[in-house]
């Protein structure tokens, strides 16, 4: 799969993490959202991010997708700085070209799907491959139809989003993101806006991705059971920091920190 030649500037080898936050800080005015965050995600790893709202977990994904600027530190993706580029031995803010090149490695699914309402499911999936990757319409169609098949939406490919349920829209959104062949996939509370009875159809698609594809994934979720099932690692965020991280067994079965225990028992009571 990865037979592409390595790029000259610090391309990833097996030991380099796919995603790496180095002392990343984000604040809105006085409010510090992320406080000097260090986080490494290995290639092919599935990392779940849990924590109370306002703990900065969604910000982590949004910064990776370049939807938020960062105030300090550096994020590396695939061995290269994301929003910086090396120049004269220093890191300077990235050019638009560099940003676009880096963004092509990352795909994202959103809480509210954000499908393009004026396009059919198939057109949503084809938009990026045709207009960004430069695929022919036929190639893009084939790729998109395969992915819609994979998420179980092939029969609805000519429907507009307004005619689809939330679960169906989210599955199309997953196919749309995958059509760009990202190396890293970000799932931002993708089941939070769904009715309980359709959550399973979305989580099943993500399970399938984890078991059949070698993608690096970061997932912000409130579905603790789901996170426990499929994650390689779980990070508990609190107040803009990683309060505790470890295997799902350790975090859910034997949390060491008091705040983790409090959060998990509060979540359990809510169910």
């Amino acid at each position: 799969m990865t037979n592409e030649p390595l790029q000259e500037t610090g391309a990833a080898d097996a030991a380099t993490p796919m995603v790496s936050f180095r002392k990343v800080t984000k604040s809105y005015g006085r409010l510090v959202v992320l406080d000097s965050l260090d986080l490494d995600v290995a290639e092919g790893e599935m990392v779940s991010i849990i924590g109370p709202s306002g703990s900065g977990k969604t910000t982590v994904l949004r910064m990776l997708m370049t939807l938020e600027t960062i105030n300090g530190g550096v994020i590396y993706v695939d061995g290269q700085p994301l929003t910086h580029m090396p120049k004269g031995g220093q890191l300077v803010p990235a050019s638009d070209r560099h940003l676009r090149q880096m963004r092509s490695k990352i795909g994202m699914c959103f809480q509210h799907f954000n499908l393009f309402p004026h396009m059919t499911a198939l057109e949503n999936c084809m938009e990026g491959p045709v207009h960004v990757l430069g695929l022919s319409k036929a190639e893009a169609r084939e790729r998109s139809e395969q992915l819609l098949e994979m998420v179980g939406m092939a029969d609805k490919r000519n429907q507009h989003p307004s005619r689809l349920s939330g679960g169906q829209q989210q599955r199309v959104a997953i196919a749309r993101a995958l059509a760009m062949r990202p190396k890293v996939m970000l799932f931002d509370e993708v089941t939070s806006a769904l009715d309980p009875e359709v959550i399973g159809e979305v989580t099943n698609v993500i399970r399938k991705l984890v078991s059949e594809h070698h993608l690096t994934m970061l997932m912000v979720t409130h579905q603790m059971g789901f996170a426990k099932d499929i994650s390689d690692r779980v990070c508990f965020f609190y107040g803009g920091r990683i309060e505790e991280q470890g295997t799902p067994e350790q975090i859910f079965g034997n949390p060491r920190r008091e705040r983790t225990r409090q959060f998990l028992s509060a979540v359990k009571e809510a169910v």
Partner: peptide, 20 residues
């Protein structure tokens, strides 16, 4: 969210305006 989806698909600003 429409802008954010367009960014996540790496669409250029001009294309985002005219297509999305």
């Amino acid at each position: 969210g429409q802008w954010e989806a367009a960014t996540s698909l790496n669409l250029s600003t001009a294309r985002t305006y005219f297509r999305i």
